[in-house]
């Protein structure tokens, strides 16, 4: 697995622990959503940097009170055609104000990078061999969007009317 973050290939500092592996203070660790909720008391008090991996169907709003404590939330795509994690990402960014890393895991393919980026993802676990350049090409395929999005791009109507306003001057 390779990790692309903010358009560059980075080495992954995080391990994804299975539910029986103890969390170590000096290793940034992503735990499952179920485990996080079950062991929340201990986990939030541990000194490790923490992330949570959320599968489709799990409710990210249950993480609300701990968001400041979490550096990474990994949203999984068991199949790329399962679009529930797009909603989860938008809820995290737009409703809950999460500012940490939202990572796409699972079936993360080129033709979905742009949707993911616009829904609020900022890192992508991709197959080995995928280069950052390909990611950049994919997210640059469009110049305008019809919707405002959590990644900060404004909707085309904002441009339309700025443009009209400028033209009217």
């Amino acid at each position: 697995m390779a990790l692309i973050k903010n358009g560059t290939q980075v080495s992954d500092q995080w391990i994804t622990a299975d539910d029986d592996t103890p969390v170590q203070a000096d290793i940034p660790t992503i735990v499952s959503y179920k485990r996080f909720l079950a062991e929340r008391e201990t986990l939030v008090r541990s000194r490790a940097e923490l992330g949570v991996k959320v599968s489709p169907g799990e409710d990210v709003t249950a993480l609300e009170r701990d968001l400041a404590r979490l550096q990474v939330i990994a949203l999984d795509f068991p199949k790329f055609t399962d679009g529930r994690s797009y909603s989860a990402a938008r809820i995290l960014r737009q409703r809950l104000g999460f500012e940490g890393e939202i990572r796409a895991t699972g079936d993360v393919l080129r033709d979905q990078y742009l949707f993911m980026q616009r829904a609020g993802f900022d890192s992508y676990e991709v197959n080995d061999g995928v280069e950052a350049r390909q990611w950049l090409d994919a997210v640059r395929e469009f110049s305008h969007y019809y919707q405002p999005a959590p990644n900060g791009t404004s909707a085309v109507w904002a441009r339309r009317h700025a443009h009209l306003a400028a033209a009217a001057e």
Binding site: F80, T81, D82, G83, Y86, S87, R90, Q112, L114, F115, R118, A119, F142, Y145, Y146, Q147, A149, V156
Partner: peptide, 13 residues
């Protein structure tokens, strides 16, 4: 039509 085109959340319903 415009709102639903290339929607970042609702393209894999």
């Amino acid at each position: 039509r415009q709102w639903s085109s290339f929607h970042p959340e609702f393209s894999f319903l």
